[in-house]
């Protein structure tokens, strides 16, 4: 008897998947490895050492990177909180307020930051702030980040809200809860996984942004990506690899977090 054919299997797909993983990870892994290089030459392997990590925190460039890191994280947390609040309100409007005029246009507007090419948003923001006489600096970075974080926060929040049937809120209102109580006591607790993933996504997107930040940051203000970019323009130095590896670690922690939250959200229901 012939062996039954596995219809899901295509020759070579496994190999391509491994290739894909290899392509995605090889540069990152190599940089992570070389960040532990003892040698001052970035290409020769001189043995394992943590000296570039020490350099990041205590070296001559340490204050610059520390300030940039503080800026980056402050902006990312602030922008992600604001974007999450705005996106949650928008998701309630889109998913729970029936039909109203301008609803379709609103959906397009929320997604607009994803559609406009980043370079266009970047230069347009710069020109806008200069035109209205708004001094570029931390505040302009913060405002620009909120805008492009909104759609990233909106996607998981809205998806979650769609998957929570409105019968729960109806039941709450049937049991004498006002609309606000129905939102606060029933919808909001059920939305926690979506809101958290929205927040995490917005946070990481803000933390990642280079291009828009680079245009609206103003003189002397740096975030980690702009500081790294400025440094890399003069050549890749080992301390940059150490910082990159640290940031890589932050990203991995965040994906893992959102992964766990996503799973918790699934099993709860």
């Amino acid at each position: 008897m012939a062996k039954p054919v596995d219809l899901r299997r295509f020759t070579g797909f496994r190999a391509i998947t491994w290739l894909c993983l290899f392509v995605l990870y090889a540069p990152l892994v190599i940089v992570a490895i070389y960040s532990f290089n003892d040698s001052t030459s970035i290409t020769r392997w001189g043995g394992f050492s943590l000296k570039w990590y020490v350099d990041v925190f205590t070296g001559p460039e340490a204050p610059k990177f520390r300030d940039a890191a503080i800026n980056s994280f402050t902006i990312a947390i602030g922008a992600a909180i604001c974007a999450t609040l705005i996106a949650t309100a928008a998701a309630v409007a889109m998913n729970r307020a029936g039909r109203f005029r301008g609803k379709t246009a609103s959906l397009a507007l929320i997604n607009l930051p994803l559609m406009v090419p980043e370079i266009v948003t970047a230069v347009a923001s710069l020109v806008f702030f200069i035109t209205i006489g708004f001094k570029t600096g931390l505040l302009t970075i913060f405002l620009a980040h909120i805008v492009f974080c909104i759609p990233f926060a909106y996607l998981p929040i809205s998806a979650r809200m769609q998957s929570v049937p409105d019968m729960y809120e109806q039941a709450a209102m049937d049991l004498y809860a006002t609309p606000w109580e129905a939102f606060r006591l029933v919808l909001l607790p059920l939305m926690v996984p979506g809101i958290l993933s929205g927040f995490l996504l917005a946070f990481i997107i803000s933390l990642d942004d280079f291009l828009i930040t680079n245009f609206v940051k103003g003189a002397g203000v740096e975030t980690l990506p702009t500081a790294i970019f400025g440094s890399v323009k003069q050549g890749i130095k080992p301390n940059i690899m150490a910082i990159s590896t640290l940031l890589l670690g932050v990203s991995v922690v965040f994906v893992t977090l959102s992964w766990i939250i996503g799973r918790a959200g699934q099993t709860k229901r």
Binding site: L85, I86, A89, V92, R96, F100, D166, P179, A182
Partner: peptide, 23 residues
């Protein structure tokens, strides 16, 4: 916008424009 598509629920009917104002 497919995952953000419209849903028919009307729990907070009439508040749509208000809630979208910040966005």
């Amino acid at each position: 916008g497919a995952p953000g598509g419209a849903s028919k629920s009307e729990i907070y009917k009439g508040n749509g424009p208000k809630l979208l104002l910040p966005a």
